[in-house]
């Protein structure tokens, strides 16, 4: 029984002034470097007659673009948000499979682990989700500020009432509008926690199983590794699709009037 210590916070590798370079950050840079190298090789041979790597990238790109088009309505609108979302997807797709690379699991530097899956530290999913949602909110505010505020504080509905019979409906609508503010925060936390939890749990399960006895450290963890490959790819996809749907929802909220407003108008 030598189960490795399970660490929720990251280890600090180096300190540059006040900035702590953690192992999750270091691994993030490696993934970024890998992405740049991939991009270079795909771009260098890009052409009408595609290479194998280009075909692979085009299949993935078209699949995500199709989903984004469904969410945003038109392809033109989807393409405005697409570069950000697809970059996040590609990053997570590579970052989640990084534990398959040999020597990445056990390498240590001055007693601290040198590598750690970027998404198994809560900062990274939270930052991605925060970036996307804040961007969508910012665009919605820039498009029509009054309408955006009116989506959450629906007190203007009181002045649109025709008779006292509508009062119940309007009160519920105003309450729901205020609840939507909590809902926006819940979206952020839930989408970030899902990615973090899956990646972290995958690592914990494998390290516990392989640390149980000497017999379970070779073949027994293999099903869990395969499950980790699957869940890493699926979670990268789900994270991107959820962010796409949330962003399109926020961007659309300033365009269409909702049901109650239609009835009152």
């Amino acid at each position: 029984m030598n189960i490795p210590k399970i660490k929720v916070p990251t280890d600090t590798l180096w300190e540059i002034g006040p900035i702590h370079i953690s192992n999750a950050m270091f691994t993030t840079w490696i993934v970024m470097l890998l992405l740049l190298v991939f991009a270079y090789f795909v771009k260098r041979n890009a052409g009408v007659r595609p290479s194998r790597l280009q075909v692979l990238f085009e299949v993935i790109l078209e699949y995500i673009l199709e989903k984004a088009t469904q969410a945003f309505g038109t392809e033109e609108r989807a393409k405005k948000y697409f570069p950000l979302l697809f970059t996040i997807f590609l990053f997570l797709l590579i970052a989640n499979q990084l534990s398959l690379v040999p020597l990445i699991a056990g390498t240590t530097l001055n007693g601290a682990d040198l590598f750690r899956l970027p998404a198994s530290h809560y900062s990274l999913p939270l930052t991605f989700a925060l970036l996307c949602l804040l961007l969508a909110h910012g665009i919605a505010i820039a498009q029509s500020p009054i309408r955006y505020i009116g989506n959450y504080f629906k007190f203007h509905l009181f002045f649109k009432m025709k008779s006292i019979k509508d009062l119940g409906m309007v009160l519920i609508e105003v309450f729901l509008g205020l609840m939507d503010i909590i809902g926006e925060v819940a979206k952020l936390v839930s989408v970030a926690t899902r990615l973090f939890g899956n990646l972290f749990a995958g690592g914990v399960v494998i390290s516990i199983i392989s640390g149980l006895t000497i017999f379970t450290s070779f073949i027994v963890p293999m099903p869990f590794v395969i499950l980790g490959i699957l869940s890493g790819a699926v979670q990268a996809f789900v994270f991107t699709i959820l962010l796409t749907i949330y962003m399109s929802g926020i961007a659309d909220s300033t365009r269409k009037p909702n049901e109650v407003e239609k009835q009152l108008a």
Partner: peptide
């Protein structure tokens, strides 16, 4: 189906995070 399963298991993941917070934080 895979996407729906990944969404359905999210409450399990939340309870895992709560368990981790209880144990380590």
């Amino acid at each position: 189906m895979i996407v729906a399963i990944a969404l359905a298991e999210s409450t399990g993941i939340y309870s895992l995070v709560i368990a981790l917070i209880i144990l380590f934080v």
